[in-house]
């Protein structure tokens, strides 16, 4: 029989297996380690390796990570959400203003409601009317930003509620900064939902081939609605974390974060065309950008130079991860 060759195939040796690993898939982790080691040698004496600085790298990545985890679902579903940055800004001011007038719990609920409402509108427009998410969320970016500026007359909204600040990123739980706990929660939830639930699998199938998913019984409209709703809620949470950490709500909080979140997702290996996504990759994407920022600051580059270097590294990483 001709098929005997397949049956007698020998187990590949370790070296062969090593050769078979698709390095492109792990480029983000490799890049992270290489750049980390590079900074460690170069900037060791400037305090790069101090515990404080390492925690800082995580802290600076936290709010972006929260948004980027949800963005991973959106992009894996072959959609995009450009409104996350300004949703964060709007939720920060709504939460701050509501706390000032009605107290803590209504404030938290109001902040989250911003995400539910805007995410829901985004999702409904995309799934029922079939408007591309790029356009819907581009419009929403302006609307949310404008609203936040309008209702506050551009003024910062101070938050004096210590409990709020303690919960939402301003305080520590034991030795652990609250922001890191939120970040960890987002990652754990994201990993579980994307890889281990029916919803996550259906998100990937919808992004990979919407028609085939529909033919397999997936309600793809509902899936698209849900990912955009979740993205809105995550952005609102991120905005509330800004408000807690900075003791105020301001319309500028989160401005431009949509680009950082998208970059983190793509760096992490999620396909811009949908169908594949990695939440852990997204975490490292966000950490990599935070790491670069941190290192470049310690190296004495000013913010304009940082942006140039960061841009180059992002393009390089994505180019290396590209399929043949």
């Amino acid at each position: 029989m001709v098929s005997s060759t397949a049956e007698t195939a020998v187990q590949p040796s370790f070296a062969q297996r090593l050769g078979q690993i698709d390095w492109r898939r792990y480029i983000i982790y490799i890049a992270f380690v290489l750049i980390f080691v590079f900074f460690a040698f170069l900037l060791g004496r400037q305090g790069f390796l101090s515990g404080n600085n390492l925690v800082n790298i995580f802290r600076q990545a936290a709010t972006i990570t929260v948004m980027a985890v949800a963005m991973t679902f959106v992009i894996a579903c072959a959609e995009i959400d450009l409104s996350v940055g300004s949703v964060a800004g709007l939720s920060s001011v709504i939460a701050a203003m509501t706390i000032a007038t009605y107290g803590l719990v209504p404030g938290i609920l109001a902040g989250l409601a911003v995400g539910v409402v805007i995410g829901g509108i985004n999702g409904a427009l995309v799934s029922t009317l079939g408007i591309p998410s790029f356009l819907v969320t581009l419009g929403m970016l302006g609307i949310a930003f404008g609203l936040a500026q309008w209702i506050t007359a551009s003024a910062p909204q101070p938050i004096l509620d210590e409990t709020y600040i303690q919960i939402f990123g301003g305080g520590n739980f034991g030795p652990i900064p609250g922001l890191l706990i939120w970040m960890a929660l987002a990652i754990v939830a994201g990993v579980l939902f994307l890889n281990r639930t029916k919803f996550g699998r259906q998100v990937l199938a919808t992004g990979g081939n919407r028609q085939a998913a529909e033919y397999a019984g997936v309600k793809t409209k509902r899936i698209k609605f849900t990912v955009l709703l979740l993205s809105g809620m995550a952005a609102a949470l991120a905005g509330m974390l800004y408000a807690g950490r900075l003791h105020s709500g301001r319309f500028q909080w989160g401005q431009g974060d949509e680009m950082s979140a998208i970059a983190a997702v793509i760096l992490g290996g999620t396909s811009l065309f949908g169908g594949a996504g990695s939440v852990v990759g997204t975490l490292f994407g966000a950490l990599l950008m935070s790491l670069i920022n941190n290192g470049l600051i310690l190296a004495g580059l000013d913010s304009s130079q940082q942006q140039v270097v960061r841009g180059i590294i992002i393009i390089l990483a994505v180019a290396l991860a590209r399929k043949k």
Binding site: G208, Q211, A212, V218
Partner: peptide, 19 residues
Amino acid sequence: AQGLVLEHSVRENLLLPIL
């Protein structure tokens, strides 16, 4: 176009309707 998510694994395709 309609039957398979081509980039996904055989396993993922087989399990999609019976998650």
